[in-house]
């Protein structure tokens, strides 16, 4: 498998990236770790005359743990997420999810930004970021803007990011309470049959807040407001779980693939969701 030829660019700063994007328009693509894009190029399913490698761009790295918010540079790898002690304490769901992505070598290359910006419904980070109510920083020649993760995804590979914009960072409000990232897959290296990101806060014996998103069950990640709402104020008992599950099942729209038909996916989605909620609740 050999990709078509392309011109390679490795700009040092964001201005350089933006200039290239302006110059080449649709002919240019930015690449972080490349583990989504390169296979597509090798299969000649993606034609990229100008490839802009972000590896040397200043200011895209780093994990910052603030008092209220966490900032992840777009080029932070899954491996860095897994190995960061401060992050494991501040937002342990990130580590739990990252460990369930691909395999060690791929996690060494795979980045937060790439996983998020690519728009592949199979990617795990988008749903996770929706659960955490993250905001994505987009920089274009027209300036900087932030888009909420929950507003970012439009369809498979279609996002709110304009072609000439670059996703540079993710800002996550520090999560409270218990968490879980539950994923069913066929094997290591597979996308999810169904995956659920759950973050729940508890007050007394009742659920104070709950954020729930699921992965690979629609052409975008699915943040279900209804599923979260179904838990709030309850003791996360069987009835609440059923209500949350029902709400989520109303929001997902899986399609058949090699992992199985729609009925199976909907059933597994419900099971995985319940398990994630129960685990998150037990940690809340």
């Amino acid at each position: 498998m050999i990709p078509a030829g392309f011109e390679y660019h490795r700009p040092r700063d964001l201005e350089g990236v933006l200039a290239l994007l302006d110059e080449h328009g649709d002919d240019a693509r930015v690449m972080a770790g490349g583990h989504s894009l390169i296979p597509m190029m090798k299969l000649r399913m993606a034609d990229v005359p100008h490839l802009i490698d972000l590896q040397a761009v200043d200011g895209l790295a780093g994990i910052e743990i603030g008092a209220d918010e966490i900032r992840l540079g777009a080029m932070v790898t899954q491996t860095e997420i897994i190995g960061h002690a401060g992050l494991a304490e501040a937002a342990p769901i990130l580590r739990e999810a990252a460990l369930q992505i691909a395999d060690p070598q791929v996690r060494n290359m795979g980045t937060v930004g790439g996983n998020i910006a690519n728009g592949d419904p199979g990617n795990d980070m988008p749903g996770l970021m929706q659960c955490l109510d993250a905001r994505f920083t987009l920089v274009g020649s027209g300036g900087v803007r932030e888009v909420a993760a929950r507003e970012f995804y439009e369809a498979a590979y279609m996002t709110a990011r304009e072609d000439e914009e670059v996703l540079t960072a993710v800002t996550i409000p520090r999560p409270a309470g218990g968490h879980a990232y539950e994923k069913q897959k066929r094997k290591i290296g597979d996308y999810a049959t169904a995956a659920a990101a759950v973050q729940i806060a508890k007050e007394g014996r009742a659920c104070a807040s709950a954020a729930i998103a699921m992965t690979n069950l629609s052409d975008t990640p699915v943040f279900s407001e209804g599923a979260g709402a179904a838990l709030v104020g309850t003791a996360v008992d069987a009835a609440a779980l059923a209500a949350a599950s029902e709400a989520m099942l109303g929001d997902i729209d899986p399609t058949e693939d090699n992992r199985g038909p729609v009925a199976f996916k909907r059933h597994v989605a419900g099971v995985i969701l319940r398990r994630a909620i129960e685990r998150a609740w037990s940690r809340a």
Partner: peptide, 15 residues
């Protein structure tokens, strides 16, 4: 210093 899969990396990236 990191394990990577060299079939999914362009030589240009490894420059």
């Amino acid at each position: 210093g990191k394990s990577v899969k060299s079939c999914t990396m362009f030589v240009a990236q490894a420059d």
